[in-house]
Amino acid sequence: MDCDQNPVALGAYLDDELHASEAAALREHIGGCPKCATEIAELVRIKRGFRAVGPRFAPSPEFRRRVEQQISYPSRRFWRLQLIPAAVFAAAVLLVVIASALFLHRPNDFAEIADLHVNALASANPVDVVSTDRHTVKPWFQGRIPFSFNVPEFAGTEFTLLGGRVIYFHQRPGAQLIVAVRQHKISVLIFQAGPELDRSFAFPEGVGHHNTFSIDTWQSQGLRYFVIGDADPSAIGKLSTTFKAANP
């Protein structure tokens, strides 16, 4: 009952993996070989056993969704496309916040400067040191403010020095000089320069306007100057120039 048939071929025959000629030859052999016929019957039994294995394992719908989401091209593109405008929007919001912190701050600070000017004029004693002499006014500030500045010579100009007082701005002491030009009074305010003042008043040189006041500001030698008044801008500008010349 010896048979040299390769058992591997029997499985291939069952799996329909033999060439037509090989299959035909094997079929003929099985017909005449009880051993191979038994083998084939056993293999068929196993093959049928797999049909009885039961239902296939099925993935859960949630798991399918999870993988779909993970690999979905439109969703990946969606996120990319969504992220760009979102990032742009976030950047824009940030810019607006920074800009408003810088620029919206400025009118308030200008308003405070204007208030200091108006307060002085509304006061019964607009100045604490009454003098038209710059050599009187400048020494008066010594020991009252932590810095020193030069008062320009007004003799022979349209400006008249009325006097000075100590003021406070952002909790810093400063000097306020009142200068008259014709019937108008102009304040010159001088403070120590600091980062927050620089931020608040970082704008191009020249006379600006706030509530019909003309205002000029600049920084020199660590001091921040403001010239503010209801005189026409050219007078403000001229007074600024004389202060700039006296404090190069």
């Binding site: 591997v8 291939a12 293999l43 056993g49």
Partner: peptide, 16 residues
Amino acid sequence: MSRLARARKMLRELLT
């Protein structure tokens, strides 16, 4: 093919 044949042989042993 050879692995399949062995696998079936093993299954057969296990099942019979």
